[in-house]
Design a binder for these strands. Structure first.
Lengths: 333, 333
DNA sequence: ATGAAAGCGCTAACAC
DNA sequence: GTGTTAGCGCTTTCAT
């Protein structure tokens, strides 16, 4: 298997210089006379020399590779975040190793350890759940990490996200102002930081402040069919307005309501707090909090490049603005 | 930066064996006495030794890393393919470096070269367009490649896909049997192999064989808004049945038709030949050719593991079965 | 079954 | 500005 015929040594010999000089040319070191540089470049091109990134990584202790930890690539929420990351990574010439942790075979801390073994220069963590073992794994290493589109308990890690409390309050408020009184919240895992410390308290506080009673929180609703099946329950509980944390789930509720002969938004108003492309292509289109997912990913990656270069960072907790897109699943009177 | 404190050398010293023996233990080589193996393992655990994958890669010339080349992660078609790949990669303990080529800054051959520089053990290529430079880049290396969800001109590369001609014929036939006579085909780039050598000829042949005239092929329709805007034209041309190669595009056409007060399927039947989750959650749900995307990815990755191990492969061109899902965007009388 | 030693292809002092 | 020389942390003959 001829993976790499020509090495830096071959170039050095042909150009009649030392390996060090070739290395300097390859790495853009300015301490090379122009004519030697040209000579070396000519040989590099003639031989089609390409540096072996693995050898570079071993020698320099920098792999120009970052690790992404993501629950599920087929969830557009993460796909859109990843796209932002990817574009900035390309700009700064980093490669991306992606590790999906949805699979039961791969725990969060194992994913982290695997990336560390690969000597990634940094990591971006996108799961809404960050178990203690994962926190410890991050802390043991001194490889920088940035959280994107999620938050951790103690704001220990650099983070890029939106203000979830504010966004959820705004969502609830929209339904309330439309005259809905029986408001519910639908979410996935209730124990994630974003849910347990942001969304749920926000919901409870809102209900209390507006004298709307205890309210209803429906947990563990994660995909289209979960949402679809949930509708019966919502109807039974007399819900007339619902905030849903995932748009595909919201679509499930929407479809189920429509199939039951109900009208949206007249009978039920729906707003999702994580809009992806899906929210805007269904009919009626979903009113939504549109998180700037691409930007969150991009800013997180940019932040990571700084951390990897030991640059000064003033703000470790970045909150990006979101939009409230009023569409057809709320009346917006 | 303490990326990796303890090396194989530390373990060797503590366990009073040579590096070679530690290496054998780490790699599961059987030529180690049980008691020495146990002794070494104990030290490994005590010191929390983790092998440096970069050093392993340099020494062994195997990185247990595969490269993925994909146009766009936020396209569920590729996301679902990737998921299949990812699961099998995990099973065989390969890491995945993902390279997105949608960005204008990254050409196909550059992406390939970048992965080669990283010394990936294999690559999976998922773009529907495979330029000549990319073909050459693949051929220059002897790193194995598998095409997933696409085909190349001369069947030169190992491939996993479906029978596009058969699938498209079936789709057209469905519309025809529903009594539609003015059939059109909507696709993206008309010059990709799948389109130029499979879909377009299939369409033309079908139209001719059924005496349906020249027909209409609409190209360069790639996203929801392209589809949405196209509808006016379809209406003008009197199209009553359309085969669309991308489901998000099909949804655009669907929404536009509905907004124009038309009925689907009565006024216009729509069938997509690449169903993702989106096709099934819109209303009316789209009749579709469901390609087994997850399986295509999984089989492609499995095939790649064999190629990377120089195992015998009997069939380099694999075609997986697809399903025809009859939903609400066709009448199916 | 185990160890010694030579690399893998490159970077980074350090010397000149 | 350029060359010499150690490594980086591991695998892999080749001995024993």
């Amino acid at each position: 298997m001829r993976k790499q015929d020509i090495t830096i040594y071959d170039v050095a010999r042909e150009a009649k210089v030392s390996m060090a000089t070739v290395s300097r040319v390859v790495n853009g070191n300015t301490n090379v006379r122009k004519d030697t540089r040209d000579r070396v470049m000519k040989v590099i091109n003639r031989l089609h020399y390409q540096p072996n990134a693995v050898a570079q990584g071993l020698a320099s202790k920098r792999t120009t590779t970052v690790g992404l930890i993501v629950p599920d690539l087929t969830n557009l929420y993460f796909a859109e975040l990843s796209k932002g990351i990817d574009d900035i990574a390309l700009l700064y010439k980093y490669n991306i190793i992606i590790t999906s942790i949805e699979n039961r075979l791969m725990r969060e801390d194992q994913a982290i350890q695997g990336l560390l073994n690969k000597q990634v220069d940094g990591m971006i963590y996108m799961s809404d759940s960050l178990p203690e073992e994962a926190v410890q794994a991050f802390k043991r290493s001194d490889t920088p990490v940035v959280l994107a589109g999620t938050k951790d308990n103690h704001q220990e890690f650099p983070t890029v996200a939106i203000d979830y409390k504010k966004a959820d309050t705004e969502a609830l408020n929209l339904l309330y102002n439309d005259g809905k009184q029986n408001l519910a919240m639908v979410l996935g895992d209730p124990e994630t930081v974003v849910n347990a410390e942001n969304r749920i308290p926000t919901y409870k506080k809102f209900m209390q402040e507006h004298n709307l009673g205890e309210g209803h929180i429906y947990s563990h609703i994660k995909d289209h069919s979960d949402g679809y099946n949930l509708y019966t329950q919502l109807a039974q509980d007399g819900i007339d307005g619902v905030v849903v944390t995932s748009d595909i789930t919201a679509v499930g509720i929407l479809n189920s309501a429509m199939d039951a002969g109900k009208k949206v938004p007249e009978d039920l108003e729906i707003i999702t707090t994580s809009a992806t492309q899906i929210a805007s292509v269904v009919r009626p289109a979903l009113t939504a909090i549109r998180q700037p997912l691409y930007d969150i990913g991009a800013v997180a990656m940019r932040m990571l490049t700084k951390l990897m270069n030991n640059e000064e960072i003033t703000d470790m907790q970045i909150e990006l603005p979101y939009e409230l897109l009023k569409k057809q699943s709320t009346s917006n009177e």
